[in-house]
Amino acid sequence: MTSVKQSSHFPIKWRLLDAAERVAALVWPRQLHSYTGYLLLVPALLLVFVLVIGLIYIGGYSLHELDLANYRLKESFSLTNYYTAVTSTTYRTVVLRSLYGSFLVTVITIFLAFPYAYLMVRAREAMTRKFLLISLFLPFFIGQIVRAYGWLIILGKEGLLNNIVTFFGFSPLELIYNYPAVILGLIQYMLPFAVLLLAPAITAINRDMELASESLGAHWIQTFIHIVLPMAKPGLIGSSVVVFTLTLTDFAMPEILGGGTTDFIANSIYDGFFQLSNSGLGAALSMILVTLGTAFVVVIFSIAGTGTLGFSRRSK
């Protein structure tokens, strides 16, 4: 009984916590404790469910053909939109261009990102590491639109490069609104993602393995190919999946640096909805894009695991 009397002398924080504890015990009694894990997941699951609803809407739209009489989707179900999307040479070109671009960007980005991640992880001086980290995070945090704008100033007609070219007496070059410009912009955009997904995997490589390889007489390139790359596999998987899918589905770079000449799938979807006012066709293209992206992720994950992409250690 004395404890009750004493409790009023306890700090306010304790009493608040005790009250909260009683409320918690009332709302979520002990019998339910084995379900606490699920309870904690509820907000995240609900938020993500909005995307599922959106996907269901898109899937529904894709099954209705556009009625050219009133520019609305017909009531009846049909696969016409998919048929149009698959048979049209325009869209086939766009899909192939996107896939080829994603492949190109993935390969080049990882080639460029690997030495960056490697030197950053292995840097002996803290200053070097910090410098590399900041140089990586700054563009990462600046965002795609601003960076694309930067490229416009560099590559544009009156831009930096053309000023240099004309200074030496050459005629200005067409550096923008073409495929290479889009690829360049995408590589620059993807580089931080790739490095950040490679770095943890490289950290996990024991340095002694490299030393052992080299003391046995391997050239550093051999060590790199036979020791470092295979051991960095989780990072290579994680970064290729992210770079490939983000490139495949990118909108801004093809739009801004491609200027309508080098549409990727996302641009065609946008045009389907807003230029052609054919939301059914746009939706069908969306479903094709979702399928392509998911298929790629599923294939890679089932062959090689989730790499550095999993949320917890158990997922390995």
Partner: peptide, 28 residues
């Protein structure tokens, strides 16, 4: 916590990454 369908739930929670942004945006 011990959770059933751990892997499926992880895949579900990765949907924001696997669904292309253009599709997520249009869906929403």
């Amino acid at each position: 916590y011990r959770i059933h369908f751990q892997t499926s739930l992880q895949v579900y929670l990765l949907l924001p990454f696997t669904i292309p942004l253009v599709v997520s945006g249009l869906g929403m």
